[in-house]
Design a protein around this nucleic acid. Structure first.
Lengths: 179, 179
DNA sequence: ATTTACATGTAAGGGGTTACATGATTTG
DNA sequence: CAAATCATGTAACCCCTTACATGTAAAT
């Protein structure tokens, strides 16, 4: 039940249409909870039906922009959700599965795949670091947006971990394959 | 499409029945790809229909143990899958979402939740470290099961990261709430 | 007028989660 | 034989993914 609350958060930060939300997800919340526009439209419909959000009155026709804002009930629902106990869900990373499978059936081409992942993680880390420089400059070690910064630091930490792990993995198996 | 391949890997390591697989998942593969017995039974059925695994002949009645082994076609399918390019999927961590939401609607009780998560991650790390000591002792810095060890090291690294991040987060907000 | 970009949706299928159902085997 | 345990399975629901469909507005 995370997506609806992600949407509520985004709408509280700024009322938006479905497409706007999709774009904002692509470059902020989506970093740790991605969603496609299909998911978002469906969820907006549900949230509206539940009385948690409201569409700003418009001639409702297809292909016509429809902007939503959060109702008081929506804010309450979000606050409830934030306060709930939720256990962290375990890792779910196919690459680790594939390594384990490779230990059994062999792994031609795995080295290349690891290098590809390494490059992708380095790219993501760079993106995060740029955002950090832009949004959280050292001067105002803000109390205001400390939480947002913390979230970004989680992303940075995770990418850093993967880069380190992949590097270690690659220095270990310098032979291209073993079928 | 990860679960079937996780099962193929497990069955190659050792032919098993559905319930055995469920238990083995709970304490090894399941650390980075969990599955319930319902999922496993359904998937075993599909794999058998596809001709990738085979049940060792038994009077097939309900409630009767049924052991599966991997067929050559299954091994091939797994090898194919290991060789495919698959992009890493982004993080999907509700706790980060909740922090972000807390930045908007406030966060009574969030500190307690962070401490709870910290304890859970410390517990998981301990479990991983025990497995490492038992299965990968320093003496034989094995080439044989290097890949398995690497996978475990990923788990260790991830838990370590979360512990560090949560600790940092908690030292920052020593006030119990702010609604 | 046609194309392009914007914007909102529908449909189908896969996978995961939870609750429940049923048969076999062991134990008291 | 009654209860507990082992073992396999069904059903319903929800979420995510992918591909496609439809309508509006602006540009050429």
């Amino acid at each position: 039940m995370s997506l609806p609350h992600a949407i509520l958060t985004a709408l509280l930060e700024k009322p938006s249409s479905g497409l706007e939300l999709t774009r904002r997800f692509d470059k902020s919340i989506g970093f740790f909870w991605s969603a496609t526009h299909q998911q978002i439209y469906r969820e907006l419909g549900k949230l509206e039906q539940s009385g948690l959000i409201e569409a700003i009155p418009q001639p409702p026709s297809r292909g016509q922009r429809k902007e939503y804002k959060v109702l008081p009930a929506g804010r309450t629902a979000l606050l409830d959700w934030v306060g709930q106990e939720q256990d962290p869900k375990g890792v779910r990373e196919p690459l680790l599965l594939r390594l384990r499978a490779a230990a059994v059936v062999g792994a031609p081409g795995l080295q290349g795949e690891l290098q590809r992942h390494l490059a992708l993680h380095e790219q993501q880390l760079t993106e995060y670091l740029e955002i950090e420089q832009k949004d959280f400059p050292a001067e105002r070690a803000a109390e205001e947006n400390r939480l947002q910064h913390l979230v970004l630091r989680a992303g940075i930490g995770l990418e850093t971990f993967w880069i380190q792990w992949l590097t270690e993995a690659l220095t270990g198996l310098p032979d291209p394959a073993r079928s």
